[in-house]
Design a binder for these strands. Sequence first.
DNA 1: TACTATTTTGTAATGATTATAAGTTTATTA
DNA 2: TAATAAACTTATAATCATTACAAAATAGTA
Lengths: 141, 141
Amino acid sequence: MKEMTIKDLTEILKEKNVKPSLQRLKILEFLFKANNHPTVDEIYSALIKDIPTLSKTTVYNTLNVLIESELVKVVNIENTESRYDAIPEEHGHFKCRQCGKIYDFHFDMNLIDSQVPPGFIVSEKDVFFKGICRECLNNNI
Amino acid sequence: MKEMTIKDLTEILKEKNVKPSLQRLKILEFLFKANNHPTVDEIYSALIKDIPTLSKTTVYNTLNVLIESELVKVVNIENTESRYDAIPEEHGHFKCRQCGKIYDFHFDMNLIDSQVPPGFIVSEKDVFFKGICRECLNNNI
DNA sequence: TACTATTTTGTAATGATTATAAGTTTATTA
DNA sequence: TAATAAACTTATAATCATTACAAAATAGTA
Ligand SMILES: [Mn+2]
Ligand SMILES: [Mn+2]
Ligand SMILES: [Zn+2]
Ligand SMILES: [Zn+2]
């Protein structure tokens, strides 16, 4: 995702009626910059350098606030711990069983709309693939 | 799923080189009969009546054995606890945000094969929808 | 029967997440 | 500006699903 200034981030939060505290700005900034779907622990470990008083509870609280305002989505492709994603565009997720990396890939959710059972209203769609990524396949040769 | 005799179940386990103990037979039978993707707790609570000595650890152990032999799949549509599914056919899952029920629906996974990123090998595909089910929509009128 | 391998069980440990209450900062009012 | 209230952050404890571990029970074999 493109570079975001603190001013940009402040504006994004204000639009959602979320007060732009330092913690919220830094967590949102980190998620926009991240491309690896970080866990709570990874977010906390990265930001504790900037904000030495940061608490892990704040990371949890903030993520829930960001999720409620639809700026962040949870990625539950694995059952061990939740991962977080601030990419607004719909996309699919691929988890490599060897290196563990979670890839984004372009996915047109309209393709699967026709499969929604009749009479049901769908507000969220997730597509998860698992297997071996290209990089691991190349390394295994 | 159609009725399964203990003899049928024994045969299924033997084919996978899994010894057909009472606990394994009963857990597999329960999963074949269930259509609601039960949790470990639900499996345990249901079977403790039949097998008073049953331990929750055995439920976990057995499920892992059944998963390794590909008789059972984990459904991680929610991050709170894992659910288990013994339906062998590929299908999608819909979770109702109101009543919490998890529905199966027919889904042709071939539809989405073209979206797999090139060079990646996919061994598992999951499609999760969330929203409001037909029953809840009717009740809300 | 005696021995061995496998399975089951109870208990303790782990680890992610939530609950709670106190401390700190920010906003509002007088 | 000082006092007060509201919102936010923090530390700590509690919860709960899952795993680790070792002993007990069972099944298989010679
Ligand atoms: Mn993503
Ligand atoms: Mn299912
Ligand atoms: Zn990989
Ligand atoms: Zn419903």
